[in-house]
Computed example of a mutant assay.
Amino acid sequence: MTTVDVICYKYKPLKNGELPIKIRICKDRKTRYINLGVSTQAEDWDFEKNRPKPSCPNKEVLEKLIYNKISEIKRKIVELKSENKDFSAATLVENVSNPTKFITVGELFKQHIHCLEEGKRTGYRLSIQQTYNSLLKFNRHLDIPFSEMDCNWLRRYETWLRKQGKSENTIGIRFRNIRVIFNLAVNMELVKQENYPFRKFKISKLHQETAKRALTKEEIQTTINYPTAGKDFYTRLAINLFTFSYFMGGINFVDMAYLTEKNIMENRLIYHRRKTGKLINLPMQERALLVLKEYKDGNKPYLFPILSTLHKTEQQKLNRLHKVITKVNKSLKAIGKELHIPIKLTTYVARHSYATVLKRAGVATSIISESLGHSSEKVTRIYLDNFENNQIDEAMEYLK
């Protein structure tokens, strides 16, 4: 049941002493109000019958305004029901109050996902898509206004995620993605600042310290010197990618996959990180050059045998990257067990190890930080950009 009626809101008198007249909408025990923008003196309103008294100076004007607004709301209810669309009191208010600007949570999510797809930000798009899919499973639909996504709604979603067995970091990612979309909604004036829930709902609490994924210098040497002669393709590729990443600034798997001859200029590796767009400029290390030499083939577009001319669309590339990283990390895990490495080997371990070895050698944290995770990558990139090449060159001598 949905009820629509008029009230004279006596709880918050205006500065002139008059009481605002509002339309009250109730559905599923939730109440929302639409301010008609008019007011009256308390003595001119019949609070039992909820209408202006016969003695009210503007009785006819007020009654016409009230009738028109209630009729408009009831028409909207019939329209929504005829289209078999579920709605809440909040949704109804948004539809009536901002009919041209009303964009649901689901619609803005899909718009943002499309923009990321157009910008070929595949990894980030996938993260936003996963959050969207998760919210759909939780709420069954996202045909809701942003004002409905309040603190209580977010807490229920958090509880639901925990019941699903999601890790603290996964939950944190979900909420950071929601905050991104909510910030877009605020900037587009789809929701008022006072309805912003993240002032009270703190995302910072949703963080779990990730187990250290860095090796000692001795463990790194043991790994990169692992004998690959006679081994299968993915075992050799796994060691080569790990080695290249360690010696070349902790470059991650996706960035390595997209490297071409154009990224090597005057014996330097120069590329833009696909994740952040930041320019990386590092001296080529001898061991890294030996890795590239093994795969040198002028007929192939990429330096590593991960992507090829067969992978034309973004989806084909994404599928290929997923397939290769899965097999590479499976090989690294097996190698780690064989070498009795105390932590599970992945390509990302090389990235962490690069940063950690430099720090242990006394390199300033302003040049490279201990971790290259999400919380520190941005800071690291900023500082790398601000240092001269020779300072970075000297720092990387510690890797040898």
Rank of each mutant, 00 (worst) to 15 (best):
K12S: 12
G17W: 00
E18F: 13
I23H: 02
I23Q: 07
K27C: 07
N35E: 13
A42W: 13
A42M: 14
P54W: 05
K59Q: 06
L62Q: 07
E63Q: 00
I70S: 12
I77R: 02
S88H: 01
V96W: 08
S97Q: 15
P99I: 06
I103W: 08
V105S: 07
V105H: 04
K120F: 07
G123A: 07
S127I: 09
N133G: 05
L135P: 03
N139P: 00
R140F: 14
H141T: 11
E148P: 10
Y157A: 06
G165Y: 09
R176E: 01
R176A: 05
N177Q: 11
V186D: 06
V191F: 05
E194R: 13
P197Q: 00
Q208L: 12
T223E: 10
T223H: 03
I224M: 07
G249S: 03
V254G: 00
N263P: 06
I264P: 10
E286V: 13
K300W: 01
L303P: 01
T309G: 14
T313M: 03
Q315Y: 13
Q316E: 11
R320W: 03
N329L: 05
R351I: 06
T356P: 09
V357F: 10
A361T: 06
G362M: 09
T365S: 14
K378F: 11
Q391G: 02
I392Y: 08
E394S: 11
